[in-house]
Design a protein around this nucleic acid. Structure first.
Lengths: 214, 214
DNA sequence: CTCGACGCTGAGCAAGCGCTTAGGGCCGTA
DNA sequence: TACGGCCCTAAGCGCTTGCTCAGCGTCGAG
């Protein structure tokens, strides 16, 4: 259980000690879950005493919130880059799925906290996070709507399909493990291909037929 | 937050009080998570004192295990019925996905415990559950392999696709909520269609084009 | 050199946790 | 009526939890 990922993860946050607490929190929450993680465990991983946590964060829940917010903002940025890129709806959707699935694999520890610890947030913090999640949902649905309008996609249930596409990517965080799994970029390519087939109109199929090798 | 589901859910289990504890445990674990649930809460929902729990279950973890095992066995039964049914690989896969996705929607409380509380199990119990999960995986992969062999499916990465199909269905338990969502059978139909398009060989498309009426 | 602010620690508090134990009512059998 | 087994409760034990607080060292500003 090593952590090769998270390169310059929490870049330039506050005093360096707060940064260490954030990464320690991500690791611990991802491994055991929020409620099974003790403040002593987090502080220990960051190399300090339990009391030090409360200098940088008001409560354990606020530490979770800070992790969750930064995580959601990064996830949104990944989708937004795809949605705002040039190209057909098919290209933008492939970009979005490839990048989003890959992000969930590469940063699966952060992603696990982002996707599976929402219930532990306080009411106000939860509301703020939900707003970010709705934006992500809206961006994906927008791409699919574009494709349907252009006749590139044949999708009967747009909201349902958008939900399924996001759901597929999100669940990568659950099953992906750095050790046993295929590399993140492979997950991204596979998922982009699968989603492409899910939405493609029959006549637009030939464009995809020649496959994902580039 | 009512519970219309779970009809004759834990049918004929032990003394009736143990049954009440199991359903109370499912509700509480699904709502708050295993670690955030107290034995007092479970006992309270079942209408008894905290000590009563320990007459029927050795520990809180054993209660979780019993829920998880029964849940996994039911999930496996759903997939097994599809895998062993008559029909083409395409028909069996559609059956499997429709039933499995629908099960995760209909029994989303049980499913949440089944899919998201594995980490709370003890080592031996975890191993027993993992064996059940591998069977489910094997059954789905088997159907897809059949379809590829018959030329009905065009799938480059069979294990990866099987994983994605299961992942898609499993994640229904995360986002589905009885109140706000579409009905479970609609989720099943949508997902069966999406997965069908994911795996179908281009030439077999026409068979699907005219839809699911039999 | 003095001093206040900052980052941190050691010790510990109140609350809540999983779980145990002693005992009480209720049942079918004799 | 007597009795043994089954369910159950009231009380509480030992421990861990999130969090606090008094105090200590370090360091830049005056």
């Amino acid at each position: 259980m090593q952590d090769v990922q998270e390169p310059a993860a929490w870049g330039g946050v506050e005093p360096e000690a707060a940064q260490r607490l954030l990464t320690a929190g991500v690791e611990a929450f991802a491994e055991r879950g929020y409620h099974a993680t003790t403040t002593r465990d987090i502080a220990g991983r960051a190399g300090m005493s339990p009391a030090a946590l409360y200098i940088h964060f008001k409560t354990k829940e606020e530490l979770l919130f800070r992790i969750s917010r930064v995580g959601h903002e990064r996830a949104r940025a990944v989708i937004a880059a795809a949605a705002e890129s040039e190209g057909t709806a098919g290209e933008r959707l492939a970009y979005a799925v490839r990048a989003f699935a890959r992000w969930h694999a590469e940063h699966h520890t952060t992603a696990r906290v982002v996707q599976y610890e929402l219930a532990a947030l306080g009411e106000e913090h939860y509301a703020e996070i939900v707003a970010l999640r709705r934006e992500i949902d809206r961006l994906v649905r927008g791409i699919i709507e574009d494709g349907v309008r252009d006749g590139e996609f044949a999708v009967a249930d747009v909201p349902g399909t958008a939900l399924a596409v996001l759901s597929l990517c999100v669940d990568v965080a659950r099953w992906f493990s750095a050790a046993g799994s295929r590399p993140p970029e492979e997950v991204g390519s596979l998922y982009a291909d699968l989603v492409g087939r899910m939405v493609a109109a029959p006549d637009a199929r030939d464009a995809r037929r020649h496959g994902p090798q580039k």
